[in-house]
Design a protein around this nucleic acid. Structure first.
Lengths: 312, 312
DNA sequence: CCTGTAACATGAAACAAACGAATATTTCTC
DNA sequence: GAGAAATATTCGTTTGTTTCATGTTACAGG
């Protein structure tokens, strides 16, 4: 055996650094401080006697040695995770029922693919998606009508726990060539004289209104549309402005169909949570669904970030 | 991520336990105490919430969960080791010269296969085997005539370090039906009235004579033979007794061709070492040769054990 | 070129995990 | 059922990891 004392921790670290493009971002993703990541990376490099990352460049690049270890991480870590899943099935059994309620319209974009890959791993779990608008989605947990709810609010409820999924940015959408497009970011008053195009949900479910416009006393006229593409079409044809999650509009931005701008200097960020009953929180097929969603989303969605105040 | 905090350490542990058939044996192999192994295994089982080994049975068996993790270990650990080898090549370069001198005749049995698998991994290293009997093999290191010497003595030499390979038992060989075969082990005086058949080397290179017979004042007549099969043939045809490493005679024992007995109550154990120049001791293609020999030998040879006073 | 900001490094101290020594308990063997 | 061998447990020590506070470096914008 070599005297290098490499551990899975190091592989997870390197993968996080490589994929997030920096030590600070990696630290957040691993729920560690930046200092811990720096120490650990240095210790690994010392024990191997080789540098792994190019420090004098941003975004950080990997050295040849770093890329070799990253290759190892990408093959070995999924094997480890698969084994852990198998163990979880041995422990808790591999069957169950998982009825999912979703608050946000655009969430279907990533939920469907995630459900597909989950089904491969847990064929014994009966997946159900609760359709239609729900006045009180989290209440469905308590009523035993749903087993997992995707929500952006963390309202405390007896017997319900919230697991952070990820944070995402809401972007304001403008037609190309709009006068506001010259600004780097939009202020609440920029919305004052435009129609706001939204999904058909109450105002208090819209982060833009609840957290930005209402506090600023701005109350623009609203127009509702059911589908994401319909909203985009209305914006593109200059019927008004909209605000959607960054991931949902990325493909349309690339084609120049519309233009997106941050809301406020630092952007309008929201978090998504999976709410589950406390009694289910430790069950393998539930936690693995949440893990699958996270893994899938981070791999698929642009512009999302790990939750800051994670507790897992 | 699961909250189970599994590390490569745990996989190495489980593999050692499974392959050595017990915690105590695994501890020796990992250069740990039995206590540490027991602790670590329990901690792993607790963190997974599953038992991994069947305690109430000896030899220890694995549970279903244990077998699943062992499968993981057997696929993941070789990948890790391969990556570490690649890193070592990146660090030190992947070419060199490795001239090997061997003191013991039977060592060719395991050295050849080990050299074969080493060649696959280090195609750039020029392997050379120094033939013929060497009066002072370790001296060849100092003279720069050899780069690695397989020896069973640890004579201190300036600039030479010894790396333990493994311990093995010398077994006394008798023809089937011999009167001594009724004893569970042989004493020095049992050799007194028999011819001793050996390789053609000086007496002080023969552990049996140097460490057992000479101290007891027993000096049996000797007869020499070049080849292992020749020695076995002479024993089988009742021309005398011999003593050979357990691994070298195992295949003949199975066929009932000869009979083997321990020498002394606890057996006559010897150690093998790889001697290298201090300046070479850390070079990747050297340390990996030694690692390959160990790995290969433990997988292939019956009745060998890890060195007790290891330092690596 | 200078300045501010964001990212990374470092040192000390707190904290946690792993290890070993001694010893108790269990299991197997005869 | 006694003795030997193997595993568990308790406790103190050592080692390693994380954080906090702070220093240093790289880059963007004036």
């Amino acid at each position: 055996m070599s005297r290098s004392h490499i551990e899975l921790r190091h592989l997870r670290l390197l993968q996080a650094v490589a994929e997030s493009g920096g030590l600070t971002a990696a630290a957040e993703r691993l729920h560690l401080t930046q200092s811990a990541v720096s120490h650990q990376l240095k210790a690994l490099e010392d024990s191997l006697g080789l540098p792994l990352v190019e420090r004098a460049a941003r975004p950080l690049g990997l050295t040849a040695a770093g890329r070799r270890l990253l290759t190892l991480a990408r093959t070995a870590l999924p094997q480890v995770n698969a084994a852990l899943r198998d163990l979880a099935k041995l422990k808790d059994g591999d069957a169950g029922e998982l009825r999912i309620a979703v608050e946000c319209h655009t969430c279907y974009d990533w939920l469907m693919p995630a459900m597909d890959s989950y089904r491969d791993v847990w064929p014994g779990v009966e997946l159900d998606l609760l359709g239609g608008f729900q006045a009180d989605p989290v209440g469905l947990l308590q009523d035993q009508q749903a087993d997992l709810v995707i929500t952006s609010e963390r309202a405390p409820r007896a017997g319900v726990v919230y697991v952070p999924l990820f944070g995402f940015e809401m972007l304001a959408l403008l037609p190309p060539g709009h006068s506001l497009a010259s600004k780097k970011w939009l202020t609440p008053t920029d919305f004052a004289n435009h129609t706001l195009i939204t999904y058909p949900v109450p105002e208090d479910r819209l982060d833009l209104i609840r957290r930005v416009l209402l506090p600023a006393g701005v109350k623009p006229p609203r127009r509702e549309a059911q589908l994401t593409v319909a909203i985009l079409q209305l914006v593109a044809s200059r019927r008004g402005l909209a605000a959607l999650p960054a991931w949902a509009v990325a493909p349309y931005l690339e084609r120049g169909y519309i233009v997106a701008r941050p809301i406020g200097k630092h952007g309008l960020w929201a978090e998504l949570y999976a709410a589950v009953r406390e009694t289910d929180a430790a069950r393998a097929f539930i936690t693995d669904f949440i893990d699958t969603v996270k893994r899938d989303s981070f791999a698929r969605l642009p512009g999302i970030r790990a939750d800051l105040a994670a507790q897992n």
